[in-house]
Design a protein around this nucleic acid. Structure first.
Length: 503
RNA sequence: GGUCCGUUCGUCUAGCCGGCCUAGGACAUCAGGUUUUCAUCCUGAAGAUCAGGGGUUCGAAUCCCCUACGGACUACCA
């Protein structure tokens, strides 16, 4: 382990959004490429928004994706605790330090007073130009501050931003960003109500204490990055400040805007890695896992939403991504999620699976239908159809005829291919295949083709009618393979039945 | 409104330290081919005047400026 340390720091306010998963993935790839550490920290400084189950969900999601943390809430580590609500005392120390250094101040303004200030001065913010008109330790006497504190009056601590300073944020993806400090407001760092810091302070303190070397996070944090730089400076940590990289956002597939849960529901793709049931409303949202996406496919497709290797290779395992990833190749503009490409990725990973792995995917569906089958045979079946499906759920539609006889015959195909002599042709085929030894695709093909050719029948017509008998419609893998796997007895039965029933 | 970030085929993007770009690849689309069928697969086509306008230069998608558009942020949320 070297000194590269990155963290993924979600707040447990609900299920993990797929954009968050991508942020975590980029953090992971960045760290692992350099042999660094990947840390999970839970940012639960907003007690009002806590959602039960969210933390467990996050951990399970990464387990499914195969992204393993080196340190974190669920496995500890040398820089714990990794949950901000358990670090109250730590933050308090630094709040006091900022206060004593006069780099922050105590404010007593009520929500109503703040509201009033904002309506009276529409373009104003709580900053150097405004703070002397507000109720805080800068405007009231020391004694009064003391008295208010004694009586337990709620307060917040705000950072005291020095105006007219030029702040530089160095971003690994976007380069140097300059902002004048006058544009920043005196952000709340700490609230007495729950004795917790806000994101900004907790974030800086934790990243410093946990020796985070690189902060890789979503673009929505870019506007507050200058504030963070100022906080590092105020705490005397600017020398060891982590490097920043702000990732482009994941956008909705149609129109513009940030990807949201609603888009997923409307357009039919998941925005969450795993299924999530809202504990309050009971509303259920599907996940990639439940839709039949493979974790390595999700990792692969997410990696390519905003990054590419610069070569023409598009299929990467997690290990290959680790080797190839570089933060410099992350693009600057937002990426729209493309459902079709997502399906294609899943298909590619379906193709990579062995017949027995695909059989494992089909097994639960068969079990549900009370169908039992020899596992070697099932593997053979799956080998025949795996290149025809994107998701495990499509497997049944491609294989049902191996397990049960068709219950109806596709009228279109009947109309196109059937003729008066077909019943007799089928009967002859049925009797001919009785004697095929061994009963395999190769021998069956010879026998059937031989018959069609010597009798000078129409190959397309006979084969399609035979398929109609075996499958019920014009689809599926090579017919001889189907007949072999369905078996002699059942195949003959189906062919004779079709000869009787199709008119 | 203000601040910051962004803008190459429908989508993800390559290219961006200027000439090899008549802008490359992938997904999707369409057309052929393979196949007894459907799917896969193979081949090909169509698809971007590089957001628009000005510069700089012998030469710009690539550098600079302006405009437009999009997004994020603008909470005692993260």
């Amino acid at each position: 382990m070297n000194n590269i340390r990155v963290r993924f720091a979600p707040s447990p306010t609900g299920p993990l959004h797929i954009g968050g998963v991508r942020t975590a993935l980029y953090n992971y790839l960045f760290a692992k490429k350099q042999g660094g550490s990947f840390i999970l920290r839970i940012e639960d400084t907003d007690s009002n928004r806590f959602v039960p189950g969210a933390e467990e969900y996050i951990i399970e999601a990464f387990k499914w994706l195969g992204l393993e943390f080196d340190e974190g809430v669920h496995k500890g580590g040398p820089y714990g605790p990794y949950k901000q609500s358990e670090r109250k005392e730590i933050y308090k120390r630094y709040v006091d330090e900022l206060l004593s250094k006069d780099l922050a101040y105590i404010a007593f303004d009520t929500p109503e007073e703040l509201e009033k200030m904002r309506t009276e001065h529409p373009n104003a913010q709580y900053d150097a130009s405004m703070r002397m008109q507000m109720c805080n330790s800068l405007t009231i006497s020391k004694d009064e501050v003391e008295m208010r504190l004694q009586t337990g009056e709620p307060f917040v601590v705000r950072i005291k931003i020095e105006p007219e300073q030029e702040i530089h944020v160095k971003d690994l993806i976007r380069g140097d960003i300059k902002v004048n400090s006058s544009l920043l407001d005196d952000k709340v760092l700490y609230k007495s109500a729950d004795q917790l810091p806000t994101y900004h302070l907790a974030n800086i303190v934790d990243d410093h204490l946990m020796k985070i070397s690189h902060v890789i996070r979503g673009e929505e944090w870019l506007p507050s990055a200058p504030l963070h730089v100022l906080l590092y400076r105020a705490l005397g940590w600017e020398e060891t400040m982590p490097q920043f990289a702000h990732l482009p956002l994941l956008l909705r597939p149609d129109g513009n805007g940030k990807l949201s849960k609603r888009d997923g529901d409307r357009l039919g793709f998941p925005v969450f890695p795993l299924e999530w049931t809202d504990p309050k409303s009971g509303e259920k949202s599907t996940g990639y896992r439940e839709m039949g996406y493979f974790p390595d496919a999700v990792v692969n497709l997410l990696a390519f939403l905003g990054w590419n290797p610069g070569t023409e290779q598009e299929l990467f395992s997690l290990e290959e991504l680790v080797q190839t990833f570089s933060i410099e190749r992350v693009s600057k503009s937002g990426a729209k999620f493309d459902l079709e490409k997502a399906k294609w990725y899943n298909h590619q990973y379906m193709l990579k699976k062995s017949p027995s792995e695909v059989a494992e995917l089909l097994m639960p569906i068969l079990k549900e239908k009370h169908i039992s089958i020899d596992s070697t045979k099932l593997s053979q079946i799956c080998d025949l159809v795996k290149d025809r499906v994107n998701f495990p759920s499509e497997l049944w539609d491609q294989t049902f005829f191996f397990f049960q006889a068709p219950t109806s015959y596709d009228e279109k195909v009947v109309k196109k291919r059937w003729s008066a002599e077909m019943p007799n042709v089928l009967k002859t085929v049925a009797s001919r295949i009785q004697n095929v030894q061994p009963f395999d695709a190769e021998k069956l093909e010879v026998e059937i083709k031989n018959y069609i050719e010597t009798e000078q029948l129409n190959m397309g017509q006979v084969m399609n009618c035979l398929r109609l008998a075996m499958v019920g419609t014009a689809m599926g893998p090579h017919l001889h393979d189907i007949i072999e796997l369905v078996g002699k007895e059942e195949s003959v039965r189906r062919i004779l039945k079709a000869a009787e029933e199709i008119k």
